[in-house]
């Protein structure tokens, strides 16, 4: 198959993608990506407030991918340990877009958690966050569901997501987080 590289380039250019990656998400990779994004934001002379907000959301989104790499059905060899993310800046907002495989059996659980977060107001999110923080089970992998609540709180935006059915085993989960500047 011949890849149309210009088509990739053109789409990334039009969406003003600053950085993109597809592959295994490792701890070292995240360290590098976060450093690159920090220096990019320094170059753009973003306000400290904007930088902090984008950085925080980036950490949560990318670590979410990292923690869920294990859930891809590696044994099949078909999907492998692979995910994708893109970071763009368009129309005065930073966009963090992530995509990863998810087992079909886990789709409805994740969907209802995302819908619950999206149904809550700012004050309700604050209460929900404290409730999970204080009572929720801490998993070895992460904050036990705190990540999405934190992203929703910090961005003040709904979580935009899609699940694309791939086959009888897996779906592809895409999450699009927008961080509006100067809010």
């Amino acid at each position: 198959m011949m890849l149309d590289l210009f088509d990739f380039y053109d789409k990334m250019e039009r969406n003003n993608i600053l950085l993109s990656f597809k592959g295994d998400i490792t701890s070292d990779l995240l360290t590098s990506i976060l450093q690159i994004m920090e220096s990019k934001m320094d170059n753009f002379q973003e306000e400290p407030k904007t930088k902090k907000k984008v950085y925080n959301v980036l950490v949560e989104c990318l670590q979410n991918l990292y923690h869920h790499m294990d859930e891809a059905p590696v044994d099949s060899g078909e999907y492998g340990r692979s995910a994708i993310f893109m970071i763009g800046k368009l129309d005065g907002a930073y966009n963090v877009i992530t995509g990863n495989y998810i087992l079909n059996e886990n789709v409805s659980g994740l969907k209802s958690r995302l819908d619950e977060v999206n149904s809550l107001s700012k004050d309700e999110l604050k209460e929900y966050y404290k409730q999970i923080l204080n009572n929720g089970e801490m998993s070895l992998k992460g904050g036990g569901g705190l990540g999405m609540v934190d992203i929703a709180r910090k961005t003040g935006q709904k979580l935009h997501y899609t699940f694309q059915p791939i086959d009888e085993k897996v779906s592809f989960f895409s999450l699009n987080i927008k961080v509006t500047l100067n809010q």
Binding site: K52, L133, G142, G144, L146
Partner: peptide, 13 residues
Amino acid sequence: LEYFNTSSSKCIL
């Protein structure tokens, strides 16, 4: 702290 992630937030608690 300059930044902390949600994974740290439980440990800080």
